[in-house]
Amino acid sequence: MLNVNELSVRIGRVDILKPVSFELTTGQSLALLGRNGAGKSTLVKGLAGLVKAKGDIQLEGVSLNDMTQKERSRIIGYVAQDFSSSNVRLSVFELLLLAQNSQNMQLRASPESLVLAQEMLNMLGLAHLSERMLNEMSGGQRQMVALALALIRKPRLLLLDEPTSALDLANQLQLLQTVRDYTQEQNITTLMVLHDLNLAHRFADQTMILESGKVSAFGDTHEVLTAEQIANSYGVHCEVFIGSDGSRSIHPLSAI
């Protein structure tokens, strides 16, 4: 269980994130939605400890506030929005070793890290990119690598900031399905910032919509993503279709 109590972030004189409280059961995925500048990335960074945040965060009964960044990094996996702009000249396999050995004070990579790197490449279908340098890859391939780097540290809380922004349709579905399966199989908690409401419908158990740093809606995805709520939060008229299997799809019609 993830318990977030009155989490807020102030940068300079601006309250980017006003006190936010929510709970999320382990094994569930939460989609963070909202217009640009609503505070979605800041909330994720606050949870990751990348920006100074006030408030209490408890993960599986343990307070993250009392942890050092080093301790927090052992249980949190984070995929940054701008990771794809990194021009690092390390191969994917080297990056996977680096993600596991970053605290290693020995020159030799741990033998387990070699095995795990191979397993992760296989699991995400990235084995053919193993020797490829990050700066020789497409934006979408980099996002897949970024996910691999987060998962290989076996996080208990997975934070994804726009993980599908550079992916083609097939890879969007593959990545989010992987995340969903991993979240359920490993019984971890996942938060992902998304812009595509249909993807949120399909892959998120819970959805939170932020507006100007405040929560405007939070709950089960199919209850939150209604035509009325979307009109309120996004200023867009839309229709929500319910398929015969219960799946939902959103068709935007016009801006209000």
């Binding site: 990348l50 301790e71 990094s73 940054a80 390390l90 680096l98 004070m105 020159l107």
Partner: peptide, 24 residues
């Protein structure tokens, strides 16, 4: 410096984001 090799690699590779690997 040699003992810090992994951390320096992470800093070169990830810049500020090396924090998520627990590096100060």
């Amino acid at each position: 410096l040699l003992l810090l090799s992994w951390q320096i690699s992470a800093l070169r590779g990830f810049g500020e984001q090396a924090q998520v690997l627990g590096i100060s």
